[in-house]
Design a protein around this nucleic acid. Structure first.
Lengths: 221, 221
DNA sequence: CCGTATCCTGAATGGTTGTTCAGGATTACC
DNA sequence: GGTAATCCTGAACAACCATTCAGGATACGG
């Protein structure tokens, strides 16, 4: 719970951004239920009143924090997906991108929080809808490309995409909850194997056995 | 000769059970974050103080409520699974049992609440672990039986079971959140199709097209 | 410089809610 | 039928926290 930086930012804009980042951090650490104005202020190194000054309300701050997370996701996807690679390669990247559970109480945990909040809150539901739709569209694109050039075989792409997306959600739950049957480093393999079966290719073509040296991404999914 | 049940509502035991049931109901309606002692008392038709009298604390009441839900799950599984049916038939039953999302804000929503709580709370984590382990054991049993008698083909039963269980979790999220891409009545089909692929049988043997008129079960998963 | 708008803060304020408490009602047991 | 244990309740109590407020500091245009 250390403040992100002790250096005082004179620029109001910068200050606001820091509070927003602090809100995201608090959300990941304590969840919606446990997030307090005081926590955000402490994390950002300012007073609770300033949080309210900039966001008028706690819910407002949390909502905007979620929005910023959404943007980060998009940027991440954009950056990670090589546009001209083969369908197999892009599928592998999608798997690795989505299966990254992030550091400590990570991004997937935040995602789960959003699900539960979405049960009752319309805005959270909308956010999830948007991000999920975009994720599935990405997956669909890759599947269609692979089917078009003959590397994939898939009778019902719509169903396949839905299943693969849902499987990733489900696996993420197990990993986030430290399920001994689903160790973090197996998640990618499990998902890619399913993808291989769904798309009628040898899983050997997707699952690399090489030990991972990849840098951890800042955001998953 | 006054029967012990003559004063049902007055019987302390019965009263306690009602409060417990009310706690479960409130949990489903409002979630962990929104559950108040006053809500439980109102739902049970008593005073808040009585809730505390019986359970000493709100968290205690909610914890015991979860325990009772766990018991109900087990009873439900026991009742639904025909012990002497074929592996295919039992697999179908498992699919239908797990994919039942229950009425309104249903049982899967409660399950999702438990996941999020389990991120920080040890008891919730233990509960999930226990229920999940038992569910997977059930699935594993059926898979092994099918493999033994030659109806299923499965290279890695462990991985298959993990994937099928995770897929069910993931699909349940979509359905609980009313995702337009995953209508409730398609969940069972999607899951059974995946099971068919995983186990190397024709999905036609699992997925029945007959419209279901079956009575809704009281608990899913 | 000076005045004004913006930015920021510590100290109230007020509402919500878990929990305690003192005692009334009911039951169990002799 | 009387007494002690159990069950139950309304009315405080106290903690916690979002939000308000009055005013201090700071930037900024003129």
């Amino acid at each position: 719970m250390a403040p992100t930086t002790s250096l005082a930012a004179k620029d109001p804009e910068e200050r606001r951004r820091r509070i927003l980042a602090a809100a995201v951090e608090v959300l990941k650490e304590k969840g919606f239920a446990g997030a307090r104005i005081a926590d955000i202020a402490a994390m950002a190194g300012t007073s609770p009143a300033l949080v309210v000054y900039h966001f008028t309300t706690l819910d407002g701050a949390l909502a905007e924090a979620l929005g910023s997370v959404e943007d980060d996701f998009y940027v991440d996807w954009e950056r990670a997906l090589p546009p001209r690679a083969s369908a197999v390669e892009r599928l592998r990247v999608l798997g690795e991108l989505g299966c990254d559970t992030g550091p400590a109480v990570g991004n997937w945990a935040l995602w789960m929080e959003v699900w539960v909040r979405a049960l009752r809150d319309g805005q959270a539901r909308a956010l999830r809808r948007a991000l999920d739709a975009r994720w599935r569209a990405l997956l669909r694109e890759v599947v269609d490309a692979g089917v078009a050039d003959g590397t994939f075989t898939c009778a019902d792409p719509q169903a396949t995409v839905v299943r693969l997306a849902a499987l990733m959600d489900g696996l993420a739950v197990q990993v986030s909850l430290r399920d001994p049957d689903v160790p973090e480093d197996q998640m990618t393999r499990l998902w890619l194997e399913s993808a291989a079966v769904e798309l009628g290719i040898a899983s050997r073509r997707l699952v690399t056995t090489r030990r991972r040296t990849t840098r951890r991404r800042t955001s998953a999914r």
